[in-house]
Amino acid sequence: MSANVAPYRNFEALRAGLIRRKMMDKVFVIIGLIVMLACLAILAILFIDLVRDGAPRFSWDFFTNFASRNAARAGILAAWVGTTLVMTVTAVCAVPVGVAAAIYLEEYAPKNWFTAVIEINVTNLAGVPSIVYGLLALGLFVYQFDLGQSIAAAGLTLALLILPIVIVATREAIRSVPNAIREAAYGLGATRWEVTKDHVLPYSTGGVLTGMILGLSRAIGETAPIITIGALSFIAFLPESPFKGEFPFISFAWLNDPFTVMPIQMFNWVSRPDQAFQSNAAAAGAILLGMTLLMNGMAIWIRYRFRKKINW
């Protein structure tokens, strides 16, 4: 707009342009809303569809029956027991190691190339495709360590897979603890470990819990790495019970047992052409999805609660 043009001649054009631009703004808001709602709607459709397809199979028997060639009699007993045991191994391995690594990186690590290497590794591991963890486990755990296609091998694999998630969440929680608290403790003569154990960690509980739940919710739905280590999909027995009638009352023999897990059971049913098995797959999927959503919801709730409760 050059200076010698009288303003009143442009007024109409200017206003038309303004109206048009404001219009575009509104159009974009509508597009944005539609796209966002569409994504949320798809999530809802997914869930409703699974529940609807699987509805005829929801019954007590579905939880207490083994897999079977007869679709109507097949159940997920071996799968949910397997999932529970594998998740136990994963949590027991991943949480302590992940929290310890996070503490090291936040509270102890000096700023040098060595620390940088660890940090880059954690970031990169988060981006490694899950099936590659399966290959690692197949070569390392199954054959080199001779763990076989066991619950221990699967639990360790998933533990490595979720380690970056636990580390990142814990680090974030530790970082949000104000330095004044550390300095006060140091000022009273506490050592670094005492500061960490008595002050930093208790304040980070929320973040650690969130990381653990998010990690496990990722692990519970992972199929590819477990298929790669060669988990069987047709299992008609349970692993040995961890609880014994006589001393020492607890047994770890189940760690070496073959197993199946929920997502594998679902995959097995999905890949059958027989329509009857599809509703089994849907029912298993609905339960799996329900568990994942529940865990994620829990993580969000914990994060919210702790954020609200703590006032530095």
Binding site: T292, L293, N296, G297
Partner: peptide, 11 residues
């Protein structure tokens, strides 16, 4: 939206 990313891939 993050839940959308948490759905198991087999589903």
């Amino acid at each position: 939206l993050e839940l959308l990313g948490a759905v198991p891939t087999v589903v």
